[in-house]
Design a protein around this nucleic acid. Structure first.
Lengths: 336, 1352
DNA sequence: CGTAGAAATACTGATATAAGTGCTAGCAAATTA
DNA sequence: CGCGTTGCTATAGACAATATCAGTATTTCTAAG
């Protein structure tokens, strides 16, 4: 197999047996529409095509090095070379007759069984992009307008640790709570040496809450290309996750406001940061939670999704609540 | 310390040699050919006065090439030579030798500054024991030990005054014991003796005082100084006036031994109240006894006044120190010591009134005017800003203008100067009290009227907050005190504050601290990119700083009170002596204060204050309850501490509640928020040293340093050697220019303002933010993004509009407060030497509105030329400034009707003035001209309007002069021409031409842009090009201009980038000389900022092969000001406070330089340092010729009738500046300053040189027994240089034979070609060399003398 | 009572945070086959 | 060793990230000698 000279820090699992295992375990295939975002050098795509040959199988890989390698190694794969980063790409996709990629729009009451999208976001640079995609779950736009579409992503282990961080963990963040609240998330494959990337014994601890027990494919360094993102990079590996929206409906904006501000000081008990939720926050929330001292004293890193929602609801009833919708307007760069 | 002194002394010797062979040092490694070439074509050879190298009997280690061009030493030294020489080998440890990071604030390893400030704090709050512990820590810092005695003296002086020591013997014993036991390395000095003497004198009232006299004599005899008594008595801040008096009375010292300021008081005031008179003369108890005194006064002084009238020439001397005038004042005054009690103060004021009345005699004032002035309360403790307009009945300006003769006017000026002293003091020191009283007043007012909580005025609220906050703060202070008392060494926290910071809480009156806190927070509204709030970090630091500032200024006053204890200043004339003495002493005292609170302490104190305020400050608000769907009312905290994310970074934010914001937008802020740095109503203190000048009660520093100790060190060094007199004189001229507010313009502005609507550049009031409606919940991501961006833009616009309006509000209110006053703007410099007024809000550097509001205090008859220039000025303000002068005059003449209408009906007329480029100034000028035209002969009009003369693209003018660039010189009017050249238009045309070419070749973008290139589009880019604008910066500027034409931001940006390329090329094309110089400057700075000292501290190599570059670019301006580019990596650190941790830089750290910024900053900074020099030179000259002068960097202002004179002077000064080849001189200075520095170059590994060096490194490695590093190579080279410079011939020989990697590189001939090779990977050390100077062109700077449009 | 060792605390440096990367050039540094 | 890659920063003023954690240094406390 031809390999490009440089890889932008993107890493791939190149062992076809392992890939087949993952594809099988994911319980997603076969599908009629498969969209691959940043497939990289394409080993995953190749297996998908070989195994299932989906009728609509489209790759979006604009990067010069990878593009070339792809077409050289797998001339059969259909890479339309649009950049998955651009929102406009998806509009082009929707309009284009030529590409003929028009999945069914399905209802959110059941999982989508028509479309799956696969992405390799192992480049740490792409973390932001993943976050934006995930945010689309709340508005049900972008690819999620087709319904509860499963997403299979390759990310570096560290990022996975953030998404999956258990209660109390130092990596527990707004994003972990988000994942727990709005998605079903499972690990499809990880490195054999990583008990769990970044988080100790993570899988054991969170299996019941977040991570559906599945057969997990384990791989080793020899199956990864390149072995290290950079010479000096940490020895962490990459992980394959499956993420499906769970269809829960929440009033997102207040929830977002509350989680954002509470996680700001994430090991400070709620009662001590209530004030930062708005002018007179303590005075308002204190009586509201007099009967729920446990939550009142709880640290955000230990709060359950339910509890965040509860706080958001209480917040909504506050006559003097700040304008949570324009919170983002409160700060701007001075030079314009 | 010791070591460095020795070293620098020896270098100084070298310098003595090298300065006489100045040129020999230049271009040791460059070969002299280049510098010769530069002048081959030059006509200016007559300027090249030379130093004769051959006459120099001393041989430098460098051979002097015979054909080398000599550096021209000018006939007149503007200050460069001495200063440069001095700063090249300064008397302090150089900053590029090693790291100096004092970040770690652990108790064992605190910086001297931290300890000082802590020591001071402990002493001021009377924790003497604790202070002693700090002394011990200070003593433990070995390098500091030389100066330790000063710290001990500080301690001792507080101890003596604390009352803790009862007996003289106890104190002297303690001193002996401390110095022997605890601090054996330190010995007492004269100051120590002064403290002892002062202490001994405090026993003067005791019956056995006689025995103390012997002690005092013993103390004096302890001094090592030849003139012991004089030296001891110099410590004016230790002795009180009574001390001096006593010493004189007891004949312990001679009059000649007293400091001059003190001597003056005694000499000129035989009636100076001694303690005896105090006893014998019963204090005046009631107003009844006053009339007699007054009548006496009035009778007595008549002859004097006669005298005054007849001798105007003598009157011209305004300096209160002057003996002549003092004598006159003497005659009619009766001075009494008056004890302070309320009844008396009243009567004293009455006396004051009479004094005022009589001092105005001889002026042709109407009775009403006299009455008004006399009843004006000059002693009021109410600040100008708090005085209501209705209460202010006197318009000094009007009175001044009504005076008939120059002599009268001068007398009146003198009168104002004297009687405003107290008002100035109030203005500077009582702003917080003024604010507080204002709040209280409004609160009481509201209370008596029984207002509902929702109608509460801002001031009422502020008063409530204040009164609730005060007890809490008092408690906090108490706690801090307990903590300090409880445990001496215990550092644990108690009540939130650690004992490290507790002392600071004690220094300022809690009342003041509370007021300061509230004021600061209100001032910070909408700063730091926070909508309706501020950044916590900034708030905390600002409050801390403000409190520190208050402490400093109180301390000054306390010192003054200490010296003048028991001396009444009420009798107005005696006051004058005291004032002059105080002024002198103040200079002295201010200079001494060197202590700053550490950032952490500021932050701590600030956070304590703010968090307390957060708890008490409440506002009443209405909210909507979603449950009941009803409106509810409640009281909420006015401030809320929370956080915001900005690009993933957390930012601590203090939000202000909307309801308060509304109020802040509506009210006249200046009455609630007292800005502290105001214009002055008496003359600013003259600049006499690096930190003494400007305001009377606060310290200002000559140069606004960005907390860079390096800049301060250089400045201080030259200041202490008194090497920068021209800088001072220039600044003093600007500072002495008297201004006043243009009442007519003010009235128009005020009317417009009160409508609350938008007018010209003043935005209207905007209470609510109108944002775009929310999007449907399933909007696509890009729509959401778009929506967010647009809303941000809206918010940003509102926020900036509000702050502009708020700023205008400040300006307007300040202008209102100073209506009719004579005001001054004290100035200081930025680090490049450009002058800025110290008062930030309202000054002549401000926007058009501020400028329009200001006129000169002094008026001058227009005369024929003045009238012309005023007309030209009008045309200029309308943007009609590219025509010939005659055309501009014609322009004004054509618009006489418009002008009249504008002046007489500014708001209800045609409003012609509003269409001007600078409408407010245009309005002022219209009014001025209109008044003039009313006269039979307009030339008789007395004009106060400043007329501007602007340099055409001043930066390029300097570049053209530097490069002798003929083409460039023509473009920027250095060459005489019948019509002014318009650079911007020129460039625009060039760009247009380039576009035409491109369009012909089928360039689509060019086709679109054709014909759209106006002057305006390129103007900013051409201008900023001099300042080193980058490509992207230029793109933005052009895009901004293009958005007006294209509307599509994206597109505009694209075209902007395209055009920027062409503009750059066009500029390069037409200012070739300028660019060569620019590039050369850039290259020099690049090399310097990547250079290493030979004696670099190898410990500061974190990695032996990767040196950290520590040398910043330093140069000396033609006036001798050393300039240090302060661009270093800043190491910021998190500091815990009560509210949150904040992230601030350690101002004292010395980090590696930021090479990039050093490089990009140098060319523009160098040019700025030149234009600043030109300005200061012109200012000094104008001052000498009696012109009023003001400047906005490259725009010089004076009276219309003086424009011609100023034009002549500024041209002469420009020529004087550029007569010398500044570039050549700069290079020489660099070569001296960075002599023996090394630079790291990269060469191909394969080259023969590389192989040689590798070989040498191998040898070194074997010698060291470990792999050699670059640091080792530097060390080797250092040894070699030392040997070479040795006096012993053996060692010299050894040096010559020694081979180091550097010497190999040095001997290698063709290093330049190696450096140009494509693959350079091997780092090697070479001596620092500077590139050859570009050839100088034909242009002779003398030509500009005849250029009318050089400045116009 | 002085002291070794443990526990507690203080200090330092690293890292996560949010979530379009407003765009392009030029240089320096690290990386790679 | 020649190469292409990646990352950083973009006028000058003059104005600013912060909470938490892990690891280490220092101080304090404890308890046995």
């Amino acid at each position: 197999m031809q390999l490009p000279k440089f890889h932008y820090g993107t890493r791939h699992l190149i062992d076809s047996t392992a890939i087949r295992g993952i594809l099988h375990n994911s319980k997603v295939f076969p599908r009629s529409h498969v969209l691959e975002l940043y497939p990289g050098i394409g080993p995953f795509s190749n297996e998908i095509q070989k195994l299932y040959n989906p009728p609509h199988h489209l790759l979006l890989e604009p990067r010069k090095n990878f593009k070339a390698t792809l077409s050289e190694n797998f001339p059969n794969l259909n890479n339309c070379e649009l950049d998955p980063y651009d929102w406009s790409t998806y509009h082009i996709l929707a309009k284009s007759q030529e590409l003929n990629f028009h999945p069914l729009i399905q209802d959110w009451s059941k999982p989508n069984d028509d479309l799956v999208f696969v992405a390799n976001l192992t480049n740490p640079h792409n973390e932001g992009l993943l976050m934006q995609w995930l945010d689309c779950i709340t508005r049900r736009n972008w690819l999620y307008k087709f319904g509860k579409v499963p997403m299979i992503i390759w990310i570096n282990s560290h990022l996975a640790g953030k998404l999956l961080a258990p209660y109390g963990s130092s990596l527990r963040s707004k994003r972990s709570t988000f994942m727990e609240t709005l998605t079903e998330i499972s690990v499809l494959a990880h490195h054999k040496d990583e008990t769990y990337p970044g988080v100790k014994n993570h899988i054991v601890e969170t299996q019941d809450s977040n991570t559906k027990p599945q057969e997990i494919v384990e791989f080793d360094d020899s199956m990864i290309w390149p072995i290290k993102a950079t010479k000096s990079a940490s020895s962490e590996s990459i992980v394959c996750l499956k993420v499906v929206p769970n269809g829960k409906e929440i009033d997102f904006e207040p929830w977002e406001f509350i989680t954002k501000h509470l996680y700001m000081s994430k090991i400070t008990p709620f009662k001590d940061i209530a004030d930062s939720l708005g002018h007179g926050g303590y005075e308002y929330f204190e009586p509201q939670f007099r009967d729920n001292q446990e939550l009142w004293n709880k640290k955000p890193v230990n709060m359950t999704p339910k509890e965040f929602i509860e706080i958001s609801n209480v917040f909504m009833n506050w006559p003097f609540k700040p304008d949570y919708r324009s919170d983002f307007l409160n700060i701007f760069s001075e030079d314009m | 310390m010791l070591r460095s002194t020795v070293r620098s002394r020896s270098v100084n010797l070298n310098l003595a040699v090298s300065s006489s062979t100045a040129s020999s040092l230049s271009s040791r490694f460059i070969g002299c050919n280049d510098s010769c070439k530069r002048y081959i074509s030059s006509k200016g050879s007559n300027l090249l006065a030379s130093l004769d190298v051959n006459n120099s009997s001393v041989k430098s280690s460098f051979e002097v090439a015979p054909q080398q061009r000599k550096l021209n030493k000018p006939q007149i030294d503007l200050g460069f030579w001495k200063s440069s020489k001095f700063s090249i080998n300064p008397n302090f440890e150089p900053f590029d030798r090693s790291y100096r990071s004092i970040i770690n604030s652990s108790s064992t390893n605190r910086s001297v500054m931290q300890l000082w400030s802590l020591l001071e704090a402990c002493l001021c709050s009377n924790y003497v024991d604790r202070a002693f512990h700090i002394l011990e820590s200070l003593y433990a810092i070995k390098p500091h030990r030389i100066n330790f005695i000063d710290d001990y003296n500080m301690y001792l002086s507080y101890l003596a005054d604390s009352g803790k020591i009862k007996k003289l013997s106890d104190l002297s014993l303690k001193v002996t014991r401390d110095l022997e036991k605890h601090f054996p390395d330190s010995t007492y000095n004269d100051r120590t003796i002064a403290i002892l003497v002062h202490f001994a004198l405090s026993f003067s009232k005791r019956s056995d005082f006689g025995s103390y006299i012997t002690d005092i004599n013993t103390f004096f005899s302890m001094s090592n100084n030849k003139n012991a008594k004089k030296a001891v008595l110099k410590n004016t801040d230790i002795f009180t006036l009574n001390d001096y008096k006593l010493l004189r009375d007891l004949n312990l010292v001679e009059a000649s031994e007293l400091p001059i300021a003190i001597r003056n008081i005694f000499d000129k005031n035989p009636s100076y109240p001694s303690e005896d008179t105090e006893k014998t003369i019963p204090p005046i108890k009631s107003a009844k006894s006053i009339p007699e005194t007054n009548t006496n006064d009035l009778k007595n002084d008549d002859p004097t006044l006669q005298q005054l009238k007849t001798s105007p020439s003598e009157e011209a001397i305004l300096d209160p120190d002057d003996t002549e005038i003092s004598k006159k004042w003497d005659l009619n005054e009766n001075i009494d010591t008056i004890e302070k009690d309320a009844g008396e103060l009243l009567s004293v004021d009455t006396i004051g009134m009479k004094v005022i009345r009589h001092s105005l005699q001889g002026l042709s004032l109407t009775e009403t005017q006299k009455q008004k002035i006399a009843s004006f309360n000059f002693d009021s403790e109410t600040s100008i800003l708090a005085t209501k307009l209705e209460d202010k009945s006197v318009d000094f300006y009007e009175i001044y203008c009504s005076l008939k003769t120059d002599a009268e006017r001068e007398k009146f000026d003198e009168f104002l100067e004297n009687f405003n002293q107290d008002r100035q003091r109030v203005l500077e020191t009582r702003s917080t009290e003024a604010a507080k009283e204002r709040w209280k007043h409004d609160f009481m007012d509201a209370k008596s009227r029984g207002e509902a909580p929702f109608e509460k005025k801002l001031n009422v609220k502020l008063w409530e907050w204040y009164s609730q906050m005060l007890p809490l703060i008092k408690k906090e202070v108490e706690q801090a005190n307990e903590l300090l008392q409880d445990s001496l060494i215990d550092k644990r926290k108690a009540g939130g504050i650690s004992s490290d910071y507790a002392p600071y809480l004690n220094l300022v009156d809690p009342e003041k601290m509370c007021v300061i806190t509230i004021l600061e927070l209100l001032k910070l509204n909408s700063t730091g990119g926070v909508f309706e709030g501020m950044r916590t970090a900034r708030a905390v630091i600002s409050v801390g700083k403000a409190i520190e500032l208050e402490f400093r200024s109180e301390q000054l006053i306390r010192n003054e009170m200490h010296t003048f204890k028991n001396v009444s200043t009420k009798p107005h004339v005696f006051k004058k002596y005291v004032w002059s003495a105080k002024k002198r002493l103040r200079d002295h005292n201010i200079e001494k204060s060197k202590i700053e609170w550490p950032q952490a302490a500021r932050a701590q104190i600030g956070s304590i204050m703010i968090s307390t305020l957060l708890h008490v400050a409440k506002v009443n608000v209405r909210g909507h309850d979603p449950k009941t769907n009803k409106y509810v009312y409640g009281e909420l905290p006015a401030f809320s501490h929370s956080y915001q994310y900005h690009n993933g970074a957390k930012i601590g934010v203090l939000k202000i509640h909307k309801s308060l914001i509304k109020q802040l937008n509506g009210e006249r802020l200046a009455t609630s928020v007292q800005p502290q740095q105001m214009p002055m109503i008496v003359k600013p203190r003259k600049w006499v040293s690096w930190n003494s000048g400007g305001y009377h009660y606060s310290q200002s520093i000559l140069i606004r340093t960005r907390d860079s100790p390096e800049q301060v060190a250089y400045l201080k060094a030259v200041s202490e050697e008194n090497l920068i007199p021209t800088i001072y004189s220039g600044l003093n001229v600007i500072g002495l220019t008297g201004w006043t507010v243009n009442r007519k313009v003010f009235n128009v502005l005020s009317e417009v303002w009160n409508t609350g609507k938008q007018f010209l550049d003043i935005p209207g009031i905007q209470d609510d933010m109108v944002v775009l409606p929310p999007l449907p919940s399933n909007a696509e991501p890009e729509e959401v993004r778009e929506w967010k961006l647009k809303n941000k833009e809206i918010a940003n616009k509102i926020s900036s509009d509000r702050s502009v309006r708020c700023d205008s509000n400040y300006k307007l209110e300040i202008a209102r407060a100073f209506l009719g006053e004579k005001i001054y703007f004290p100035h200081n410099l930025d680090f490049r030497g450009r002058a800025y007024p110290l008062s930030p809000h309202f000054n002549h550097l401000g926007n058009d509105m501020s400028r329009g509001l200001l006129i000169f205090w002094k008026g001058r008859r227009l005369g024929p030329q003045g009238l012309k220039w005023l007309k030209v000025h009008l045309a200029n303000l309308f943007g009609y400034d590219k025509a010939s002068l005659d055309d501009r005059i014609a322009f004004a003449n054509q618009h006489i009707e418009d002008l009249k209408d504008s002046a007489e009906h500014p708001l209800d007329g045609k409003g012609w003035w509003q269409s001007a480029d600078k409408p407010w100034q245009a309005l002022a000028t219209c009014m001025e001209l209109n008044e003039a035209f009313k006269l039979e002969n307009p030339e008789d009009f007395i004009s106060h309007q400043p007329v501007h003369q602007d340099g055409t693209c001043n930066g390029l003018q300097h570049y053209a002069a530097l490069g002798g660039d003929v083409e460039g010189a023509i473009q920027v009017n250095l060459v005489p021409s019948p019509k002014p050249q318009d650079v911007y238009n020129h460039v625009a045309k060039l760009v247009e031409a380039r576009l035409d070419v491109a369009a012909k070749e089928g360039d689509e973008t060019a086709k679109i842009l054709q014909g759209k290139i106006t002057r305006k589009v390129v103007k900013q880019t051409v201008m900023t090009n001099v300042y080193g604008v980058t490509f992207i910066g230029a793109t933005r500027q052009i895009a901004k201009q293009l958005t007006e034409k294209f509307d599509d931001k994206q597109l505009a940006f694209e075209y902007g980038g395209y055009l920027a390329k062409h503009v750059f090329a066009a500029i390069r094309e037409s200012f070739k000389g300028a660019h060569e110089i620019q590039d050369w400057l850039g290259e020099c700075s690049k090399r310097i900022s990547r250079a290493i000292r030979l004696d670099v501290d190898s410990k500061s190599f974190r990695n032996g092969n990767k040196p950290d570059f520590m040398s910043s670019v330093i140069w000396t301006t033609p006036l001798g000001l050393p300039i240090v580019q302060p661009y270093r990596d800043e190491s910021k650190k998190q500091i815990k406070t009560n509210l949150q941790t904040i992230f601030i830089a350690d101002p004292l750290a010395v980090n590696p330089v930021n090479a990039r910024r050093q490089k990009s900053g140098f060319p523009p900074n160098f040019i700025h340092s030149l234009d600043a020099s030109h300005m200061l030179l012109s200012a000094t000259k104008c001052g000498e010729h009696g012109l009023d002068f003001a400047s906005v960097h490259d725009s010089y202002w004076t009276h219309a009738c003086d424009v011609d004179k100023m034009n002549y002077l500024l041209r002469e000064e420009f020529i004087k500046l550029h007569e010398v080849d500044l570039i050549e001189r700069l290079k020489t200075e660099f070569n001296q300053r960075y002599k023996d520095y090394l630079q790291v170059c990269k060469i191909p590994r394969t080259s023969p040189l590389a192989r040689k060096i590798v070989e040498c490194r191998k040898q070194l490695s074997t010698k060291l027994g470990r792999p050699a590093t670059l640091a080792d190579e530097i060390h080797e080279e250092k040894i070699r240089k030392e040997l070479l410079n040795s006096i012993e011939s053996e060692k010299q020989e050894a040096g010559k034979n020694m081979v180091t990697t550097v010497s190999i590189a040095e001997d290698y001939k063709d290093i330049d070609t190696l450096l140009k090779a494509t693959a350079c990977h091997m780092p090697i050390l070479t001596p620092l060399t500077l590139p050859p100077i570009p050839t100088k062109g034909q242009f002779d700077v003398q030509e500009l003398r005849k250029s009318a449009y050089f400045f116009s």
